[in-house]
Nucleic acid binder design. Structure first.
Lengths: 242, 242
DNA sequence: CCAATAGTGTCTTTGAGACACTATGAG
DNA sequence: CTCATAGTGTCTCAAAGACACTATTGG
């Protein structure tokens, strides 16, 4: 317990002496594009699961990354060319069988972002692409990434029911009709128009910024909004669509 | 992408070639005892932070543990003699500075259990002890365990506001008065009696199992309850104590 | 005028907050 | 009887659901 014995201990410590699991991060990025919920996948350029589609992710770089959140953000940008400022940690999955190489652990992150095109041919990745979520159900993903995606999807749905997360997925400005469509896609359920508008308008998370043409070009013009400052943290006391 | 090249890759793979962070799990176990919220801590018997109090936890045993949830449960029992069937994952914290040995990651688990005494003198631990949570604020814990505890405490509070978690913390059977006291301690706020009873009784999560003496021995006898089957998963659509 | 989209009025329902009230036991 | 604890009646208030209604545009 003396200061000097702790110093001595640290000096002689060698992390490679111990059997330790592989640790990685994976990221599920969602967007809405052309009225569909899409997920960003990369085609693996290296073993294992070379040639399979996978969630973007990778290992911690002990030199470059101050923390795992940074690892997630760095891997996302370098593998896809897409960035996401509001990455949220979903869960950590670790077991002996999820990676054929070794006992392996991954921390799963999630974000919902406005649609952005992917960069091409980067790092150990052949391609990065947005997939409509229903198409992925037919696909066999690398590792346990289908399950990870399922977890992230579940979290996305839940958060949509008690936060205003989706106000960050639309290109601004947007109309309330567009916003309601976004909520409905994410929650996979129809919402009542009046309730939706009352809830969002009373929550004080939107700023009106003018008027635009209606959906489809016909009809009454719609009021346009963008997220108000500090709106990210708004929590409703009651869940929606119940 | 051929089957044989993947086989060859796996054969030549050596996890020790790579610089990888230290990975551990830590567990925050809460209980109610004598009207106080308490947390289970262990005194560290080894460097680093030898002699400091810490959350129980430790490293994955690649031979024994099929997954990290098992690691958490095993470490909890072996270091404290206390078990917790409903361990819940709170968050994973990983950065370059939290452990003086190396870049380090920990996954934090949490549980709320009925009071149980600790076992003594086990493994690399001098002692395991329940601390009232206010006393811990004065204590300097090992690593970043004060912050971890804060995270777990926050999660406990939140979950109490929209689930029935606390019905598992009391020795059964219990009265509604006792249960309300438990909720109040965990949420750190007073609750209105009628609202509390209406909520719990309508939720269909309790089974009446007879009658017992009132708190303090004086007064009208109280109906006694225990958790009904499947009650763990009950979610309220509205948060409580708002 | 009509069709189409945006937006409102208003009644009902659900569930929490407040708080005074009644019920049952020991002494 | 009184005191203490358990438990209820009932009004108000906040916010969601239902659904019909009005408003504004282009043709």
């Amino acid at each position: 317990m003396t200061q000097s014995s702790e110093q001595a201990f640290l000096k002689s410590y060698n992390p490679k002496e111990y059997d330790t699991p592989i640790y990685s991060v994976d990221i599920a990025i969602f967007t809405l594009d052309q009225g569909r919920l899409k997920v960003l996948l990369v085609e693996r350029g290296e073993h294992p699961f070379k040639g399979f589609w996978a969630l973007p992710g990778g290992f911690v770089d002990l030199k470059k990354d101050p923390d795992i959140h940074t690892t997630a953000r760095r891997k996302l940008v370098s593998k896809t060319g897409v960035d996401a400022p509001l990455l949220e940690q979903v869960s950590t999955i670790g077991n002996a069988h999820r990676d054929p190489r070794h006992w392996s652990i991954t921390t799963l992150y999630m974000a919902l972002i406005p649609y952005a095109p992917t960069a091409e041919f980067i790092e150990a990745v052949n391609e990065a692409r947005w997939f409509p979520i229903e198409e992925i159900e037919q696909l066999q993903l690398a590792f346990d990434h289908s399950e990870l995606l399922e977890l992230a999807r579940e979290r996305l749905k839940n958060k949509t029911a008690y936060t205003v997360l989706p106000i960050h997925v639309l290109k601004r400005p947007f109309s309330l009709t567009q916003l309601q469509k976004a909520f409905e896609l994410l929650m996979d359920t129809a919402l009542e128009k009046k309730s939706f508008r009352r809830r969002l308008l009373n929550a004080d998370v939107l700023k009106e910024v003018g008027e635009g043409i209606p959906e489809g070009g016909k009809g009454r013009p719609a009021a346009l909004y963008e997220p108000a400052d500090g709106s990210e943290s708004h929590l409703f006391v009651r869940v929606f669509g119940d």
